[in-house]
Amino acid sequence: MGEFFQNLVNALQYGSFLALIALGYSMVYSILMLFNFAHGDIFMVGAYIGFGIATLLVTLASFGALALPGWLILVLTIIISMFLTSFVGMLVERIGYRPLREAPRASAAITGLMIGIILETGNLALLGAKRVSFPALIESATYDIGGVFVTNKKIMIVFVSIILTLALHQFVTKTKWGMAMRAMAFDYLVVPLMGVSINTIARLTFAIGSALAAAAGILYGVAYPVLEPYMGIIVGWKAFVAAILGGRGSILGAALAGFLLGFIEIFVAMIFPSTFRDLIAYSIVLLILVFRPHGFFGEPYSAKLRL
């Protein structure tokens, strides 16, 4: 039984990352109906920016110039990195997506894929082949709760991701900008006629999605402190699966699907030989889509689909 709860904790942490990254995917996907295949790499860039800021602050602190406690550095890092990475997202939108708004959707997906490759290779060319270690900002503490090991990092990661998810949900459902976004998702042809600029909404969508990716990147760095240029690929594709699985137009759905995918992977590895993890986990995903062809919360397709 202890094993079950232990894996529950494990799955919560792993699912948090998939959920946070899936949120960014889902934003772009639900509102602009685009696949942003560069998202996994924006996540990587966010982690690296976070690494840079954290290293800078830690160095400053060690010189006594700006003696901040670790947790404050972490909070600052997350905030600044989210801010900076949102510009990366807007840049990606400007270069790769805006010129292609009238083009087939798949073409925009390809530009996203290519921007992703440029970000990876650019990182490799700039920083070299060295892996970097994300600085340990908070002292790791492990609590043994009846045979279940929980660390303070895990708790923090799960909390932060849930808070960010809920905040995004509030933003989208309660604010005026959120309403504009939902309207855009509902009908991207009519809404611009109502005086809402599609460019602004697109920029905002990418910015928010990228900021969330940056937050995920930093938390990822805290949990798995080895950063490398290709770190976003596999997580990115898995989050893409989660975002679509959640259903179009459902941001909370994407987050839930992210957690679900995390649970599937972890528990398949627990119950079956872990060798078969991918095989079984993705067979489950496939089956889910066979029986729920529009994801968990998605609406059936309308004829407006631009392919």
């Binding site: 699966v241 679509i244 991918d278 889509l289 529009h294 397709y301």
Partner: peptide, 17 residues
């Protein structure tokens, strides 16, 4: 029954499988 994006995921899952 499934089209577009959801089919993309099915095909991606197939590749992983």
């Amino acid at each position: 029954r499934t089209r577009g994006d959801y089919l993309a995921i099915i095909s991606l899952a197939f590749m992983f499988i």
